[in-house]
């Protein structure tokens, strides 16, 4: 991986504004303390940590769209009840997911599931996964 330079252009600011609007959260408030990352049950599966995800949004790096963190968020609200700046990261993750989903690009295809899994999984699992991963 090479170090990429950021030029803090207007597009960067626009991306930040877009995510802030969609999530209803003042993303610039994040002080990068890392409480969210330390609290996140999914963090060990992620490619970037939740705080890093917020940082990328703050800097307007739309490359955040290529990462997996938002898709691994389980909306467990652990970070929400702990963030010392009162940010609701679950909303920021949702906003990022929505950007993709609203382009009619789904993250999963339920048809990929094995018969056995389909049989085992409870409805709430299927419905919530569709709600979070498909448009």
């Amino acid at each position: 991986m090479k170090i990429k330079k950021l030029d803090l252009s207007e597009e960067n600011v626009e991306f930040l504004v877009k995510i802030s609007d969609l999530s209803g959260e003042t993303v610039t408030l994040c002080e990068q303390c890392g409480t969210c990352s330390g609290s996140c049950p999914m963090v060990s599966e992620m490619d970037i940590t939740p705080s890093q995800m917020v940082r990328m949004v703050q800097l307007g790096e739309s490359e955040v769209m290529d990462t997996k963190a938002m898709w691994l968020c389980a909306s467990c609200f652990t970070c929400t009840v702990r963030c010392p700046r009162g940010l609701d990261l679950s909303k920021i993750a949702e906003a990022l997911r929505q950007i993709t989903l609203r382009k009619a690009v789904d993250y999963i295809d339920i048809r990929d599931l094995s018969k056995d899994e389909m049989k085992r999984l409870p409805q709430i699992a299927l419905i919530s996964a569709m709600r979070k991963f498909t448009g």
Partner: peptide, 23 residues
């Protein structure tokens, strides 16, 4: 540099696990 997210221990008298991101 990281704010401790949580302290956990199975044994209340024992060592304590801290979870924290090195930001």
């Amino acid at each position: 540099r990281g704010r401790v997210a949580e302290a956990l221990a199975d044994d209340p008298e024992g060592r304590v696990t801290l979870k924290v991101e090195d930001t």
